[in-house]
Structure formats: C-alpha cells, structure tokens
C-alpha cells in the first residue's frame, strides 16, 4: 500500500448505470425501427439518418470546443440519440442541407443555449423537427410512398400520410367510410407499410424497442401508457359520438407519430417530469392535445406540438407535484 488511503463520504459502492449506457440502450431500442425504415424507404433512410447523426455530433463538438470552451462530452451519447430521433421524424427523401439546418437548431438552439445536457426545457429533436416543419413545409410533408429497398432518395414517389388523407377528405366534405378505404389496413399500418416519417411508421418495431427499454429499466411505463390510453379513451368518445366524422381509436394510435413520440420522445429524461404521478398527468396532457390538434386543428398530426407544449409544463409539475413522502400520513391512528 504505497499510496494514501482514499477518504470519501458514503456510499462507497456505485451502481453499474451510467449516462452513456442509458443512451446506448435507447439507441439499441431504436434499431428495429431503423431496420424497418430502411426496409420500406431504402437508401434515403440511411442517408438522412447518417447526416443527422453526424451533424448533431459535429455541432455539439464545435459548440463545446469553441463557444462554451467546456470539456467535450459528445461521448455521453445524448447527441447521438438526438440525431437518430430527429432523423426518425423526417421523411426519407428530405434534402441533406435541410437536415443539417435542423440538426443545428436541435443542438445549438434547443440544447446548448440552455447549458447543454440536462438543462434544456424542450426536447431538442422535436424543436429541430418543428422548426423544419414551419420553415420547409413542402419538403417536410412530401412523404415518400414505401417501395421497399428500391425506393429512390430525392426522386422517390410521394404520397399523403393516412392522417393527411383523412384530414383533407373531411375538409372537402367526403364521408369517412369512403376515406377509410383509401388508407392502409390496420395490419399494414401495424407493420409500417404506409407513408410517413421514416421512424414512425412501423408500430411493431417501436413496440419491440419499448419492451427492451422497459426490460433494461431505462424508462418506466407511466408516460407511454398514459399517452396511448388517454388517446384511446378520447378518440373512442369522439368516434362513438360521431362515427361519420371521427376515425376509430385504432387508427389514431397506429397512424402518425404517436408510438414514436410516446415511447421515445416524450420519455426523454431531461424534458419529462420526475415523479410518477406527474408523469401520468404529463402523458394525459400529451394525449389530449394530440387528439385536439388532429381532430380540430389545422395540422393533420400533433404529437410533436403536444409534447413540446407539455414540456413547458414540466418545471411547474416538478415544483408542485411531490411524491407521497414516507411517513407523511398517519395511517395507524
């Protein structure tokens, strides 16, 4: 024993978890969705994901190195996750330059201006995505039709998403029963054979990721389940009230980015509440806002906006919704 003894306060042992491992587990959980997106959208999916991941990492490095002059922490994996999630929220035929701009907004504006990992109030990937949706509405809503591995990149055949078909059709006064025949069947939607953002289409792949995250204890069930359950209840009510105007709950949950949002975006640690009870309220909020935007709003899809709106309430929920402390109430008289 040549060196001096270390002295530190207890505990003297530490769990095996680390930020890097958690982020890596999220990446692993996203792999099935990536495989299905390549399967449906071909080379475009790979190009967009690679660009997004690379530019997120590079922007984070550059900002830490030259602007903040802080230690470089791109190896923690958070920028990697942001990059993948941003790509998954984009159509696979979007030009590279737009992806780079979106990545810059995600990392530089939504994350680093607030002090980097752990301090951003809004989900970086979603801020980037919404910025792109507003700035490049045409490119962001030209969804390639899934044509398998042979689907081209910029020259892909485009079509509308099921949600957009319903929205447009209802606006033009067409009956829902007719519109429902134009969209893919629930089983096709479950497997992801429809137009949409490259990561959101295959429900089955996302659910595999969800089970993996639960198994690895990366996330708890509260947020995803409360979002989906709230949407199911809300859309069922609307459907029962007027089945000619409102689509069934099955359609609402499988279409669009509900599962991607509920499992991977809303559960982002930094921008979600800390206490289980608050997580349930947060999930309910996202579910309700999503349905309101879809049914009554101007956009066909509202998951991104719903999550960002509820992100804004998270500090408030953290401040006021407290866990029931041990020994808080006298139960035994």
């Amino acid at each position: 024993m040549s060196n001096l003894l270390n002295v530190s306060p207890s505990p003297h042992v530490h769990g095996k978890e680390s930020t890097q491992k958690l982020m890596l587990n999220v990446v692993i959980a996203l792999i099935p969705a990536f495989i299905t997106s390549v399967f449906y959208f071909g080379i475009g999916a790979i190009i967009v994901t690679a660009t997004s991941v690379a530019s997120c990492l590079i922007f984070e490095y550059l900002i830490q190195r030259f602007v903040l002059k802080k230690p470089i922490s791109i190896t923690d994996g958070s920028a990697l996750v942001t990059g993948i999630l941003l790509a998954f929220n984009l159509p696979s035929n979007i030009p590279v330059l737009i992806v780079i701009i979106g990545s810059f907004i995600s990392i530089a504006v939504a994350k680093m201006t607030f002090g980097g990992l752990g301090n951003n109030p809004f989900n970086p990937a979603l801020v980037g995505r919404v910025f792109m949706l507003i700035s490049f509405p045409v490119q962001m809503t030209s969804w390639p039709v899934p044509k398998g591995l042979g689907t081209g990149y910029l020259d892909a055949v485009t079509g509308a998403t099921p949600l957009a078909i319903i929205k447009e059709g209802l606006k033009n006064g067409e009956p829902l029963s007719k519109l429902m025949q134009m969209i893919p069947t629930p089983s096709q939607m479950f497997l992801g054979d429809m137009g949409g953002s490259m990561g959101e289409v295959a429900a089955v792949a996302l659910l595999i990721g969800f089970i993996y995250l639960l198994y690895k204890k990366v996330i708890t069930w509260h947020i995803p389940v409360s979002i989906v359950a709230t949407m199911a209840v809300f859309t069922t009510i609307l459907w029962l009230v007027n089945p000619e105007k409102n689509a069934d709950p099955m359609f609402h949950i499988l279409a669009g980015g509900v599962l991607l949002g509920a499992i991977f975006m809303a559960t982002d640690y930094v921008t979600s509440p800390m206490v289980p009870r608050a997580m349930l309220i947060y999930g309910c909020g996202i579910g309700i806002i999503t349905v309101i935007i879809r049914v009554y709003g101007a956009y066909p899809e509202g998951v991104s906006f719903a999550i960002l709106i509820m992100n804004a309430f998270v500090p408030l929920m953290n401040a006021y919704i407290k866990p029931k402390r041990f020994g808080e109430e006298v139960k035994n008289g």
């Binding site: 060196n3 001096l4 003894l5 270390n6 002295v7 530190s8 306060p9």
Partner: peptide, 22 residues
C-alpha cells in the same frame, strides 16, 4: 504532509463535516 486523499464532493464544508482533513 498529506496523510490521506479526499475523494468526495470538492467543497470544504462537506469534507469538514465528514472528517478532520487530509
């Protein structure tokens, strides 16, 4: 001369509440 090495949170007030210095 140092007799031990402190490895906790780097604040005097925390170290001092734990032990009598290194």
């Amino acid at each position: 001369e140092r007799t031990s090495h402190y490895d906790g949170a780097m604040e005097c007030r925390i170290s001092n509440s734990l032990y009598a210095g290194n």
